[in-house]
């Protein structure tokens, strides 16, 4: 069953009165539990597509349905709620809240969801254990390595029990060992919890693990390869 349906989406940026076409009439369907990599050269529209699927940006044309929600028709506040409940984001630069500890960072989104304290605490412990950071729970981001920060970011993305994880170049700043470690965690979550993962990446290590690879060139789908 397709959980993400994008039809005819185009995106034009017009920063200085010079329109730039970032996406051109893209049609895309992603099924539940897919582990997909969106690849392509810089400026090919990977991040733009990911942002539109995640409700962070709106297409200039076309519609996007995610998990049964027609997100292209949602208001700004509805989109914030939608992201909070359904999407987990992992960013290239980790983007943890610097003044919160690893534990508090993971707990934060659940707090926004107004989950009970006991549930928040239990899930935070469980997730940080899952990403191998039991002993770093009370460290702030500045006290963690890049790989550890990205693992906290993954735990944070998973905390609200999202149906989708969207990861924008999640391994760009990580060494090989940290990358492999992170991908193992994500693959396991994908397998066991049926979470749909979509990566935008250049990283061959990520591409090698993906079961579907969509290649974008100049804002259009150049190829869509499914692997078993």
């Amino acid at each position: 069953m397709s959980v993400i349906i994008a039809k005819g989406i185009s995106k034009t940026y017009d920063p200085d009165g010079m329109p730039v076409l970032a996406l051109q009439r893209i049609d895309l369907e992603i099924r539940e539990g897919e582990f997909t990599a969106i690849v392509g050269p810089s400026g090919s529209g990977k991040s733009t597509l990911l942002n539109i699927i995640g409700g962070l940006d709106k297409p200039s044309e076309g519609m996007v349905e995610v998990g049964g929600h027609m997100i292209t028709e949602l208001s700004d506040n509805e989109l914030i709620d939608f992201r909070k409940e359904h999407i987990g984001f992992v960013f290239q630069a980790y983007n943890l809240i610097p003044v919160l500890t690893a534990r508090e960072n993971v707990e934060f989104v659940m707090l926004l969801q107004q989950r009970p304290k006991a549930e928040r605490e239990a899930r935070t412990k469980e997730l940080l254990h899952a990403v191998g950071l039991d002993d770093k729970m009370d460290k702030r981001p500045g006290e963690l390595s890049g790989g550890q920060q990205q693992r906290v970011a993954v735990a944070r993305a998973l905390a609200p029990k999202p149906a989708f994880i969207l990861a924008d170049e999640p391994t760009a700043n990580l060494d090989t060992k940290s990358t492999e470690n992170l991908l193992d965690i994500m693959a396991e979550l994908n397998r066991e919890e049926k979470i749909t993962f979509i990566f935008s990446t250049h990283d061959q290590r990520v591409i090698n693990r993906a079961r579907r690879v969509i290649t974008l060139v100049d804002g259009a789908v150049a190829s869509d390869e499914k692997r078993d």
Binding site: D76, I80, E85, F89, N95, I97, F108, L112
Partner: peptide, 12 residues
């Protein structure tokens, strides 16, 4: 940081 917080679901 504000962009990230809004992205992960913090209300404005």
């Amino acid at each position: 940081e504000f962009g990230v917080l809004v992205a992960i679901g913090m209300g404005r």
